[in-house]
Amino acid sequence: MSEGHGAARESSLGEWPRSTLPLSLLNAAQNKPMLVELKNGETFNGHLVNCDNFMNITLREVYQTNAEGDRFWKVKECYIRGSTIKYLRVPDTLLDAVKEEQNRAREAGRSARGAHVSGAGNRGRGMPQRGRGAVRGGPMRGGRGRGRGM
């Protein structure tokens, strides 16, 4: 029975709403310090100014290090194309901060929408199953399936 499937799946990801998607985390890292390593091994230490859904980022007050790790540059600000990034290291505390923010947003959304939500609840419950396989929709919060709380 497909309903059973849905329930099992929901519990497996239920406590991790999609809004903690990697790119949402990046969004939440704005003004936070981070280390970005590019595919070519160069690293950039700076504060995130802005980012987009391509993972393009702008940093300020940057220390650039070459791939060998033996030369260093100070850069006031820089733009990095997302496709050249290998990984980003962000503050450990960021995940908790995002979670709290999400809970607040969810509570606010629930009380604002009131009874309307419970009606949409069933529909919302179905959507994430598909979405989870190929997660679409990006980091927009308060979207599908958020109706069922946790």
Binding site: T20, L23, K86, Y87, L88, D92
Partner: peptide, 29 residues
């Protein structure tokens, strides 16, 4: 398949020994 990895450590291996170091929170492309 961008990943968020928490409490990350990096490991290196050589022969039958290894070492690891704390790295923290990662967003891997």
């Amino acid at each position: 398949a961008n990943l968020v990895l928490e409490d990350t450590v990096e490991r290196i291996y050589y022969g039958d020994v290894f070492a690891e170091t704390w790295k923290g929170l990662f967003l891997i492309r």
